[in-house]
Design a binder for these strands. Structure first.
Lengths: 204, 204, 204, 204
DNA sequence: GATGAATGAGACTTCATTCAT
DNA sequence: AATGAATGAAGTCTCATTCAT
């Protein structure tokens, strides 16, 4: 998604130099890595160094540090939305939903500032982020809907609650880090809370 | 708690000037407020201004910005531990446990950076924080134990999971902010997951 | 004037592409406009954009920003010299002289940085500017000479003083801007000072 | 005039450290010198170096480069106003007026960016400069008035024209620089234009 | 002990200039 | 020839920390 911005109309001509595109991607990748490792206060120079480029190049592609951060967020959100979309064709809706949830959280555990991105998705601070955030919410909503229809997830929770839980779980994973098993068990608790209680098995 | 460090034992001779103590407290208070409002990147000057003191004074009491942040965290953790302790004498152990959990999260929604403090408590990054972190874990553990004994909280979760959930819930509250009702419902999901399922009532 | 530098003599073989010439002119025009609007600190990119060309092209024609500025100055000076030349054939020498003076000043009030160009002309800082500066001085000198011969301008002022007055008037116009009437009255004072006092008409 | 800003009310207490005041003055002085020599685009670092202080100090006293420039302007304007005031008690009003004019221009010739300051005074761009600009205009107006009453300066010119002429003359002096004699003669022309023509000596 | 001025490293950003396409 | 992406020096400004008063 988010077609890499083309300097001029796709028809007009000049199809945006290939190396420029490559560098933009390199910057984004480096930024993700650096911000993940050192937090979002890491300097733009650090990002440039990691990308093997000059600072000027970074600023050419992202005119502001904020813009760079935003781009990192948007990229992540986009990837998540894509993953969610992919899972829509899975057999078991419940497994798909919980699997997505788990993947996100596990990912967050690798300290990737993912949670920050997610948090933004929930709040939609920036105009630019808005689109991708909406995208993710739509995809996640679909996943949730299917899992609820299938009777795996309780029907009385909405997308907002799910997003909140996802953000919380991700941030906990990112900040507490440490023990994968603890993380798994904590997540299991949340999942138990989300599961639809069987119709009380109507007694005989 | 958090015994105000005394510059020198009362025997030494220097009786620790009262105003110095008062200033230390003022700085701490100001720091909490400022960091809550503007994040931990707020400048030390800002803290000093809020405290009505000079920067020099702030640095006399906390030789480093990091030290100041740590002190803020420690203070928070101490207060939480105290609250937990107070709840130990409550009638209903389950209500006490869930009540504490709720209070913490609600607080986090308001007072920025609480979650960071909590996260540190879970991980025990700093030597200094360790003590107070332990304190909080002990108190929370006791609360949990009572609630489990009373059959309100499922027996198969341990303190680490609870801490993880608490951190996650707090950070979600802090970052998603916004809607209090959504927050409440998300928390309810977590609580449902934590509750001990009644012994299946009934099978014949 | 300002013979568009030809990359190589027409004999050499390379016939100097017409579009290159056109581009050079476009750059110059854009530079004048941009520097007039935003001062000489405007970026070369801005000039390129205004010219509808790439920065590279700008630098191909003017290897340095300084060279570009110089070219702009030279162009202005050249135009002024041409105007002065044209006025040589005017009927009334005095009106021609004062008219030229007025035109220059009025122009300066609008078109920023003219005064800078004039100042340079007076001082002949750059080698390159020298030629055109000389040109202007010659033309202005001729105008002055005629006006003095005609008895309109006092005989005891030389070209240097006139240039100084012209520069001053232009810069004042450019920097004080504002009120056209004030400008006119101030200029009138200068003109009064320049006028030859009638031979005291007098008594014998 | 312009009492050196006191950090707190003059009564309150702490009378503003003496060295701070000294440093502020040093910065101002250095700024004047540096901007005069290298133009207003000279870097703040250069100013700091000249003042023998750290950049931080410069920025502490003048939070912005613009503020620094403004302060330099204001200082100059203030000095000029003071000079004009001093000349009010001179015997010969005409000599006082023309003397002031000459002094200003001669001063400007030492490339001091004075003309820029003057130009601002005429236009009153900034709020802060406004006060001092007004001051200067008042003082100059008084000088002019006296010279007109004394019959030395023609009655039909107003303060605005005088200011314009002063700015122009200063800028010409600053930019054309060079020959002091030329400058003097050019100024003489302006003065001739300003002088009241004797009542035409009605002689019959 | 308290104060706040001084310091200078470092952050973000711009821009003249070079160079691969 | 033209283009515009890349470069990095340099500029403005902030801020943790030190130190004279």
């Amino acid at each position: 998604m988010t077609a890499p911005r083309r300097a001029s109309a796709p028809d007009g001509g000049r199809p945006v130099r290939a190396d420029a595109l490559r560098n933009r991607a390199r910057v984004l990748e480096a930024a993700e890595a650096v911000f993940a490792e050192h937090g979002t206060t890491a300097s733009t120079e650090q990002v440039a160094r990691r990308a093997g480029l000059g600072v000027g190049t970074v600023f050419r592609h992202f005119p502001t540090k904020e813009a760079l951060l935003e781009a990192v967020f948007v990229a992540r959100l986009g990837r998540l939305a894509a993953e969610a979309d992919a899972l829509m064709s899975a057999e078991d809706p419940g497994a798909a939903f919980f699997g997505f949830f788990t993947r996100v959280v596990d990912h967050a555990a690798t300290k990737n500032a993912l949670s920050a991105a997610l948090a933004e998705a929930g709040v939609d601070v920036r105009e630019t982020t808005a689109g991708t955030g909406r995208e993710l919410r739509r995809a996640l909503g679909a996943l949730l809907g299917r899992a609820q229809e299938a009777g795996t997830v309780r029907a009385d929770v909405g997308l907002p609650e799910i997003l909140t839980l996802l953000v919380g779980a991700s941030q906990a994973a990112e900040h507490v880090g440490g023990d994968a098993e603890v993380r798994a068990r904590a997540l299991a608790v949340v999942f138990d809370g989300l599961r639809a209680t069987p119709p009380a098995a109507g007694g005989h």
